[in-house]
Nucleic acid binder design. Sequence first.
DNA 1: TGATGTGAAGCGGTTCACAGCC
DNA 2: GGCTGTGAACCGCTTCACATCA
Lengths: 214, 214
Amino acid sequence: MKVEKISELTTSRLSVYLRCLEELSASGVRTISSEELARKFRLNSAQIRKDLAYFGEFGVRGVGYYVDDLREHLRRILGLDKEHKVCIIGAGRLGTALADYNGFKKSNFSVVALFDIDESKIGKSIGNVKIYNFADFHKIVRLEKIEIAVITVPAYAAQQVLDEVVRAGIKAVLNFAPVTLIADASVKVKTVDLTTSLESLSYFLNQPVNGRDE
Amino acid sequence: MKVEKISELTTSRLSVYLRCLEELSASGVRTISSEELARKFRLNSAQIRKDLAYFGEFGVRGVGYYVDDLREHLRRILGLDKEHKVCIIGAGRLGTALADYNGFKKSNFSVVALFDIDESKIGKSIGNVKIYNFADFHKIVRLEKIEIAVITVPAYAAQQVLDEVVRAGIKAVLNFAPVTLIADASVKVKTVDLTTSLESLSYFLNQPVNGRDE
DNA sequence: TGATGTGAAGCGGTTCACAGCC
DNA sequence: GGCTGTGAACCGCTTCACATCA
């Protein structure tokens, strides 16, 4: 085990490993070697071992890893053993779709608020999630102990929204607006840029040989 | 100019550069140096020059790049000078949100079909986009000349859907299902994994110092 | 014996620094 | 003089290969 800075590449893979382990656990597998895990899910065994070794010695030589044990370790490492409150800013199509998406629940994320500035939307609900006035953002964040913000507003408004999010003390942001956002280094902003993803795909459409899933 | 394999990192940045140039062009800027472009949009000037140099010599020494000229070059390189037909498989919340999203139009993508297997959805429309029976997938792909597929079905169905997509001859896929998909190397699959993105953010919530937008 | 944990090598991408050209 | 295009240096991540240990 090392004391190094962990890259986002590693943490993303931990999330993938966790998903694999959940699948294995559900189908009754008790132990698995890095080799077998790699073969089953198209990963690299050395990378699995190295990623895990950043955080401890979870394996048993000659045996492999205990599936349920490792799963719990990963959940703890990723901070998924505690619930995290999430808000979504921008109650458009994408924002409401995400608010309604059940897939986050098993990771212990719960969407507790939507925000918008459109009077006609404020006060309504999407599923159990109420749409609040963005003017009340700070208050609701404090009240609900929101830790993560998802930004689904138009590009032109995104930086302004992010500034407000940072001012409210939120340290983790998932941004869907197709712009590069600037924030203090103490705030982790991850941008999911669908336009860039598609445009990048478009390039490879015209190439003789293509790559595969990454 | 080199003849090398272009990485997805490069093509993604080209998409970003294009967006920057469109903004500059709209505000009347005629020429720009890589240095200034980098400063304005938080990029790296050497990287801009190197990325562009893979495709030609677009700049003028002592001057910089002609904004409109470079923009058109990038549009052509990314294949955005021609329209690309897109279909979305899975007419749930996310699929319909994407079908209704206008942001792709200016990149010359047009969503021409949604697919589902749910009888109650088939035949309906989201905006101008009709929901078809997935059983008719091959026929509609051929008829509409669809080149790109977006997968927004549940995880358990995604691989099966991808296999069908590949069989229909589609070479570019954007996948939102939280699973690693396996496809032939001639097909480019890009996965946008929201669960992994959030779980990765969750990790950084508990860390003393965090990174910034990447 | 068999699989982990890990130093070392390898590789790809980024940044530097400057020759070359407008 | 100023900025591009690019070889070289650098850096970080991935993969290899093996000493180590249950």
